[in-house]
Amino acid sequence: MAIKHLRTAFASQYQPGQPARLQAGDPLQEPGGDYEMLHKQMKRLFNSKPGKKYGRFSEDIGEHPFSAWLKDYMEEKQSFASLTDRLFGQFKELLDSAQEEFSGHLMLVHEALADGEVAYLLVLESDSAMRFDSNQALDATDVLSLSRLNLALRIELDDWLGDNGSDNHLTLVHGRGTGEGGDLFIRLCGFTNQVDVEKETMTFLDAVEAFAKSAEPEKAGEVRAKAYEFCKEQHALGEPVEIGALSGYLDESQPERFREFASQNAEVPESGVLHPDHRKVKKLVRIAGSGGGMSLSFSSDLVNQAVYYDRDRDALTITRLPKALREQLQRYLEGRDGE
């Protein structure tokens, strides 16, 4: 089984100014079954979340002791039960001082995979559901949400504790609208030094675009498309983009060519790893814009083939219209002619 240890606790603060409530479950070792299925679904949600942040543990252990407790557990200086007792206790203390209502199931998972060990700290939310009880009376109940995940942290344990520890061993999901509860979760995690995703996205786009322009004209579109596909696949896996791996994907016959080009022509980090926003990377293969009552989107491969831009007149000419669009235009014009 992938899960080595797992434990949950329900935490709630319904009356700000009063002590919060926290009810912890038993620590579970290799729980398997339904727990594996639940965790698998949470990982799907985690990986698919846009706008993730990347960083490391704060060095202020006094204010953020979670990393020290986790390290003691990994070094077998304390049990998983002791680690989670401390973690849940600190979360309750944070909620005691909260000024906003909060409720959720805090779940810590230690997972062993073929390529390394990972820990997840997640806040599971609930949905309201209706059911008929044993007397056939309608009753409202709460069930775990399998479609929402707004607060979560992934810890790459090997990257963090290895000999060549990475500065970006944490990946954070911090959804909009989480309010004070979200801020307290970040304090609990001790997350800091986030990566500038916007800057790394531009670095990625600039490097790929420059490389595509340096290629033969007929292969430029293929370079952009393959770079986008690689980035999209990495996003689905919840992984960043390694320039070396991308280089081999772009040109199997010369696997170092793009890596060398990027190192000379772009501000690639020494780690050779970038965290581009896959939504913005789509600009490599699509051109889109909206405004003034108009919205357009088309493949970049169509420029100067079915879409022509006249810079002097700031005019766009589109040929080979999609059938559905052509039919809509014809019906609209026929209706106007009949007025």
Score class of each variant (00 low, 15 high):
309 Y>C: 05
276 P>Y: 09
277 D>H: 05
294 M>A: 13
302 L>W: 11
286 R>H: 12
295 S>A: 13
280 K>T: 09
311 R>N: 15
308 Y>E: 04
276 P>F: 11
309 Y>F: 13
309 Y>T: 10
302 L>N: 07
280 K>P: 00
274 L>F: 01
280 K>M: 14
297 S>D: 12
294 M>C: 05
280 K>W: 00
288 A>T: 11
288 A>R: 12
277 D>C: 03
285 V>Y: 01
311 R>M: 04
293 G>Q: 02
298 F>D: 02
297 S>W: 09
302 L>K: 07
312 D>F: 14
290 S>G: 13
311 R>E: 15
311 R>I: 08
302 L>I: 03
303 V>P: 07
280 K>E: 13
295 S>L: 06
303 V>N: 05
309 Y>Q: 07
284 L>G: 01
298 F>A: 00
276 P>Q: 07
282 K>S: 08
293 G>Y: 01
286 R>D: 06
303 V>R: 00
277 D>W: 05
309 Y>P: 02
276 P>R: 13
293 G>E: 01
291 G>T: 11
289 G>K: 08
293 G>T: 00
289 G>Y: 12
274 L>K: 00
276 P>L: 07
309 Y>N: 02
295 S>M: 08
303 V>F: 08
293 G>F: 01
278 H>N: 02
289 G>N: 14
278 H>C: 00
300 S>R: 14
274 L>I: 03
302 L>S: 12
307 V>P: 08
297 S>Y: 14
299 S>Q: 13
275 H>P: 01
290 S>Q: 14
308 Y>M: 06
282 K>V: 02
307 V>S: 06
274 L>A: 06
294 M>L: 15
290 S>T: 11
308 Y>Q: 10
287 I>D: 01
307 V>Y: 09
297 S>E: 15
281 V>H: 10
279 R>A: 06
309 Y>G: 05
279 R>T: 06
295 S>H: 15
277 D>F: 10
278 H>E: 11
299 S>R: 13
288 A>V: 02
304 N>Q: 10
286 R>E: 06
298 F>R: 05
287 I>N: 02
290 S>N: 15
288 A>G: 10
301 D>H: 13
279 R>M: 06
